[in-house]
Lab assay of single mutants.
Amino acid sequence: LQLFIKTLTGKTFTVEMEPSDTIENLKAKIQDKEGIPPDQQRLIFAGKQLEDGRTLSDYNIQKESTLHLVL
């Protein structure tokens, strides 16, 4: 599923993930694309901070959802 990642600077980029992927996987993918170390990434969806060990489906993140990346 394609997700939109929006940064505080207003930049938006996309990543391609599976619902079974963990937040950790997502942070690694963001590191590949943007060079931001996972330990500096905080991801927010629907007002909640996402925890590394959980999956996208745990948070009911669907295709074309927008996640906010806070550094």
Rank of each mutant, 00 (worst) to 15 (best):
A28M: 05
G47T: 07
E64G: 14
K33Y: 10
P19S: 11
F45D: 01
S57R: 11
V70G: 07
L56Q: 00
S57T: 09
P19G: 14
K48Y: 12
D21V: 03
E34Q: 12
Q40N: 12
D21C: 03
D39T: 09
D58R: 02
K27F: 02
L56C: 03
F4C: 03
F13Q: 02
S20N: 07
K27I: 02
F45C: 02
G53I: 12
D58A: 07
D21A: 11
T66K: 05
E34K: 08
T22W: 14
P38E: 12
I36V: 09
L71R: 09
L67S: 02
K33D: 07
L3S: 00
T66R: 05
K11N: 08
G53P: 11
L69R: 00
I61C: 01
G47W: 05
L1Y: 08
T14M: 10
N60H: 11
H68D: 15
L3V: 06
E18Q: 10
S20A: 09
L43W: 05
L8W: 07
K63I: 08
I44C: 03
Q2G: 06
Q49W: 05
E34F: 08
I36Y: 09
H68F: 05
I44N: 11
L8C: 05
D52Y: 05
Q41V: 10
Q31C: 04
I5Q: 00
T66N: 06
Y59E: 05
F4G: 03
P38F: 13
L26P: 00
L50I: 04
E64H: 14
Q62M: 15
D39K: 10
K11T: 14
I23N: 01
P37Q: 11
I30L: 06
A46Q: 10
P38S: 13
K27E: 01
D32W: 09
E24M: 07
E51V: 06
H68A: 05
D58Y: 08
E18Y: 15
L71W: 07
K27N: 01
L67R: 01
F13I: 15
R54N: 09
K11P: 14
L1V: 07
T9K: 06
K6Y: 11
E51G: 05
E24Q: 14
G10W: 04
F45W: 13
H68P: 02
I61W: 03
F45S: 03
K33V: 12
V70S: 13
M17T: 12
K27L: 03
Q49K: 05
P38M: 14
F4E: 05
I36L: 05
S65V: 15
L8S: 11
T22N: 06
R54V: 05
H68Y: 08
E18W: 12
D39I: 15
L50N: 00
Q62W: 09
H68L: 05
H68C: 04
L69G: 01
G47D: 05
Q40Y: 14
S65I: 05
D52F: 09
D58V: 04
L50W: 01
E51F: 06
G10M: 05
I30Y: 01
L69C: 02
I44K: 10
I36K: 02
Q62H: 15
M17C: 03
I61H: 02
Q49L: 03
T22L: 07
I61A: 03
L26W: 00
N25Q: 06
L69K: 00
Y59F: 04
L8H: 14
E51R: 05
L43K: 00
S65K: 03
K48N: 13
D39E: 12
A46I: 06
L71C: 04
D58H: 09
D32M: 08
F4S: 06
L56G: 02
K48P: 01
N25D: 12
L71T: 12
A28Q: 15
L71H: 14
Q2W: 14
T66Y: 10
Q62G: 11
Q40T: 15
G53F: 14
D21T: 14
K11W: 05
G47V: 02
T7I: 09
E18M: 10
P19N: 06
Q41D: 01
E51H: 15
I36E: 02
E18G: 11
P38D: 08
I30T: 01
P19C: 04
L56Y: 01
H68G: 10
T22Y: 06
N60I: 02
L8V: 13
Q40G: 12
K27T: 02
D32S: 14
I61D: 02
P19I: 12
D39W: 07
